[in-house]
């Protein structure tokens, strides 16, 4: 449904900055970066509260509550398409040094597939494991994005090297999880 899709995206974007700041802060980054994150949180939280209090969020909540239950046959058809997309995007895991943005796209596709499988009552565990592995990479990506805004990021060389080590390890874990999940995804696709 096109109507409501933009609203869901808007709400996700409204929540994202606070979420990212909280995730990065919880990972205990170096002191100056942590202090900067604390300063960023108040305006981000204020913007989120404003969004949550808006007629758009109120309308979205009511509209979602009124949507009739989904049709299972249609859901299965769409889940097949999601599995196909995941299988296509997952080829990025075979690359030696995949880009974080590509892994992020894969993570989002996998998340959709997992929720679709869960809604249908199918086994989503293998897919969930890939999602979790990619989720760690998503947190690193969020850290890099916030570091780009941090004026003293150049002084945090060790921290950035540590982040890249997490990328390599996360990539390895995601690849391993994908090897186990691939068969079940192909089964959904066909």
């Amino acid at each position: 449904m096109r109507a409501l899709a933009d609203d869901l995206r808007w709400l996700r974007n409204a929540a994202q900055r606070v979420r990212d700041i909280d995730v990065v802060t919880a990972a205990n980054p170096p002191e100056p970066f942590r202090c900067w994150l604390c300063d960023q949180r108040a305006p981000a939280r204020s913007a989120l509260l404003h969004a949550l209090d808006s007629p758009r969020t109120g309308g979205l909540t009511q509209a979602l509550s009124l949507i009739p239950p989904g049709d299972e046959a249609l859901a299965r058809k769409r889940t097949k398409a999601l599995a196909k997309r995941v299988a296509k995007l997952a080829t990025v895991l075979d690359e030696q040094e995949p880009e974080l943005d590509e892994l992020h796209r894969l993570r989002r596709a996998i998340r959709r597939l997992r929720y679709a499988l869960e809604w249908l009552g199918d086994d989503a565990k293998p897919v969930k494991r890939v999602q979790e592995a990619l989720g760690e990479l998503g947190d690193v990506r969020a850290t890099f994005e916030l570091l780009e805004e941090f004026p003293e990021a150049g002084d945090l060389g060790d921290f950035q090297r540590e982040l890249w080590a997490r990328v390599h390890s996360g990539h390895h874990k995601a690849r391993k999880a994908w090897r186990k999940a691939r068969t079940s995804v192909i089964k959904v696709r066909s």
Binding site: R2, A3, L4, D6, P55, R56, G59
Partner: peptide, 15 residues
């Protein structure tokens, strides 16, 4: 929305 070139916005102000 087939004629939409931008965003769709739900609002409780129209109810």
């Amino acid at each position: 929305a087939k004629r939409l070139e931008g965003d769709s916005v739900v609002t409780s102000n129209l109810a």
